[in-house]
């Protein structure tokens, strides 16, 4: 004879991901490492900003960058030219990185060989918001060419971020307006750092590095 039994579970569906993400965060903290998750839409300038950050930091810190893209190793190869180690994760159809994918890569290296870790998440403003990768800070990059409504249209990812970067500010005034995006970001989350950058003209990069809590002595 069989019977039906209801089992109460009450656990998040991403339990495995959240546990793994917390483990990564704890591990990084115990080893005194920094780990940042960079999100943003396609073409916002995530890779270009990481190249600029790498240029500034690589003389002082050992850096490891994990790039997530559907296909190709273009971004990892670009950033590697700036004197940091990189690895590309090809997610196939996957629209976000997750803690398991990060863990797999960290297991292949010696974490103690590095000081600072970055991920460049898959380009989109929707799915990465829901998947914790174990970073200490989430950074969302948007560029002023994405239109003045880009932040209003994607509030959730900003609600979960500690830093919003408004990039391509060199194009300010040329039919694009950075101020609108700065104000929207502040309105969505009053306690978030909001910065204007130009990866092209190398402005705002020092402020971004300071906002990450990295001090170059």
């Amino acid at each position: 004879m069989t019977q039906e039994k209801k089992i109460s579970v009450k656990k998040p569906a991403y339990l495995q991901n959240d546990i793994l993400a917390d483990e990564i965060r704890e591990m990084m903290k115990s080893k005194n490492k920094l780990f940042f998750n960079i999100m943003g839409s396609i073409g916002a300038g995530k890779t270009f900003l990481l190249e600029r950050i790498a240029e500034k930091l690589s003389p002082y810190f050992r850096i490891f960058v994990i790039n997530g893209d559907i296909a190709t190793t273009i971004d990892a190869d670009r950033i590697a030219k700036k004197g940091v180690d990189t690895v590309q994760i090809n997610t196939g159809g996957g629209c976000h990185l997750n803690a398991k994918l990060i863990k797999n890569e960290l297991d292949k290296i010696n974490v103690d060989d590095y000081d600072i870790f970055f991920t460049e998440n898959v380009g989109n403003l929707i799915c990465p918001a829901a998947w914790d990768v174990g970073a200490q800070k989430n950074i969302v990059v948007v560029s002023i060419t994405e239109g003045e409504y880009v932040i209003k249209k994607h509030p959730i990812i900003f609600k979960g971020a500690q830093i919003a970067v408004i990039n391509k500010c060199d194009l300010d005034g040329l039919g694009f307006d950075s101020q609108v995006l700065v104000e929207d970001a502040k309105k969505i989350k009053s306690n978030m750092d909001v910065l204007c950058t130009s990866a092209k003209q190398i402005t705002g990069i020092d402020e971004l590095i300071a906002s990450l809590g990295i001090k170059i002595q």
């Binding site: 019977q3 039994k5 579970v9 009450k10 998040p12 991403y14």
Partner: peptide
């Protein structure tokens, strides 16, 4: 945000 939560499962058991 309350993430997707597994509330319960109904199982057929002996």
């Amino acid at each position: 945000i309350r993430h997707l939560t597994i509330e319960s499962v109904d199982l057929e058991i002996l």
